[in-house]
Design a protein around this nucleic acid. Structure first.
Lengths: 163, 163
DNA sequence: CAAAATACGTTATAATGTAACATATTTGAA
DNA sequence: TTCAAATATGTTACATTATAACGTATTTTG
């Protein structure tokens, strides 16, 4: 058990993640737990190579595939999301913080990227998903997965800009 | 005037693009026209390096910045879109085919990516955009630009899969 | 325990994108 | 028209993101 130790809040979420994995019959190994921890501790979306640097505090020679494999696993389990516009990763608040005992399987997910402070907020708005499904249904397209990312200003940064 | 020559339909769209640029006070140079032509002739989203290969038919030593600069221009003018999930580019049907005499400025744009055939369909559905704006308004987030990409199966590919 | 499956280590390289500076072309004002 | 400024392109080098391929270790299961 190597393991950077994380803040208590993070450990709680990691324990949640571990339960979700167990429920799926998959394993949140030490390595995966550590990568997830690094994602969760970041205030903002983190790139794979930043995570790699973080890992190397523990495991000196770590190489890209180590991180990417862990990320692939976490994505599959729905424990993190990838922000495509940033090539970066965030924890899934829905799966990790919610009182959702059910699996972290694909859910409506939208991301609000503040260009002021860099913070990303996750929404789980069904209205958006339904609007998308409605719009696609009549042309016969079946949505399997959707990416919705909005760039703009969060309330705090907008106020600063207007001041 | 070097110039791969393109199909007639493409030339028509390129002429449309040229008019739109003129209306903006910007210039669709030969190079930019050629890159846009290559995007339009592709049946599917094209990567920057595929475009580079296309360019090299004409201009042997062409280098990445040449393509990326042209792409940046075309994106700014709203003549093409980037599909983030694919790191690839498509022509903007709204700007190039529509009878829209107005500028190719940011508009509602959603992309349906068929994982069967690779084709991408552009929607311009206001319902989706409004759902997004509604969902963000009450938390004080101001949307400046949005990326909506759905993966799934188009009607044709779904029928094949079900057969 | 042994075989199979799963996870991880390691090396090398592919694919995507940009910084920085030089040259050429176009525009616009004197 | 001519030259200065702005814009566009050429060129070299490199940064960033991601994966292929193969070997080893660990875990699971019969």
């Amino acid at each position: 058990m190597a393991g950077t130790s994380f803040a208590e809040k993070t450990e709680t979420r990691l324990d949640n993640a571990e339960r979700l994995c167990a429920a799926h019959g998959s394993r949140l190994t030490d390595l995966r737990r550590q990568v997830l921890g690094l994602v969760l501790e970041a205030a903002r979306p983190v790139g794979a190579y930043d995570l790699l640097d973080g890992l190397r505090a523990d495991k000196k020679g770590a190489a890209p595939p180590t991180v990417y494999r862990a990320l692939d696993f976490l994505l599959e389990e729905g424990l993190i999301h990838k922000i495509e516009r940033l090539s970066a990763f965030v924890g899934c608040t829905h799966a990790l913080d919610g009182s959702h005992t059910e699996a972290g399987h694909p859910h409506a997910a939208q991301f609000l990227i503040c260009t002021g402070c860099g913070q990303v907020t996750e929404l789980d708005d069904h209205g958006i998903l339904h609007a998308l499904i409605d719009a696609t249904r009549h042309i016969g397209f079946t949505v399997r997965h959707s990416t919705v990312e909005a760039e703009g200003l969060c309330a705090a940064c907008r106020d600063v800009a207007t001041a």
